[in-house]
Amino acid sequence: MTTQKNERQKYVEVNNLKKHFKVGRNAYLRAVDDVSFYIYKGETFGLVGESGCGKSTTGRTIIRLYDATAGEVLIDGVNVHAKKSRAELKDLNKKVQMIFQDPYASLNPRMTVKDIIAEGIDVHNIAKSKKERDERVYHLLETVGLNREHANRYPHEFSGGQRQRIGIARALAVDPEFIICDEPISALDVSIQAQVVNLLEKLQKERGLTYLFIAHDLSMVKHISDRVGVMYLGKMTEVAESDELYDNPLHPYTQALLSAIPVPDPDYERTRERIILEGDVPSPVNPPSGCRFRTRCPFATEVCAQVTPRWTEQRKDHWVACHLYDDEYKGNFNR
């Protein structure tokens, strides 16, 4: 098993990635602050975490929608942020697609649905005739649960969930290898969520697609992901295989997150216990010293303010950045 794993190709490698936004004369917002992870070819990597913790920024920096402040991103061995010729950029744009979080802002209101979806087909000369172009668009519309009658309408004529599906059809249009799905399904009803997720999984099986799947719906993330990363305030706090993370969450933040999942069972919801996080989310402009979660962590001690936690492998393929589990600092938490 392990040897097989080691042979797996890392399709995406993110090494010490930083993205800081200038927000004042001498102030920087550290949206992504030294994040490293990798995604195997053909795998789905789920990314979860507090809203504002830097998930979308990570996704956008990976495909160079933002320039990185530091660190590097390799996609299929190609350094994304290095200087690139036009042809190389075009190739990258075809290989990597993004489904955006905000279906309202990401569709051009003056274009018909057909032209929005066909944009990539045109840029990359994928269709040989107008007829083939149309057929492709109709097929894509049906693939995402819309119908061909929708092709000549404009984005504002659609509901939130319908627009999100237009975005998905657009991403699929150029046959990408890697898709960054930034909350691709949160605007959809559960039945269509299931359709879209089944579709993403089917395409993955057939075409070996690789996904970075950003979402808040933890039960869906668990279902679709092979491995899951948990972010907090610009940092990666825990990474593990999906079942392992849900069965044995180590980081106190992950534990709180999992305990807050609303369960579709009214009786259960009436009596459930949540781990309530005290305090506010700190500002990413002035993040806490040491461990960024310490201001809200029920277990925090002085060492958490002094030393930034190391990334340690606690169980097989299960990594966490928390002093509670670090042999060198564990002792600080004894009574």
Binding site: N198, D243, I261
Partner: peptide, 28 residues
């Protein structure tokens, strides 16, 4: 169908149960 489509947190499913077909076109 709606209640059946939800992913179940505590059991592994190979595939989610979607309602087959597409919603009606409200223009027609």
């Amino acid at each position: 169908g709606l209640l059946s489509s939800m992913p179940k947190l505590h059991t592994r499913q190979s595939e989610l149960l979607a309602i087959p077909g597409t919603p009606p076109d409200l223009a027609n």
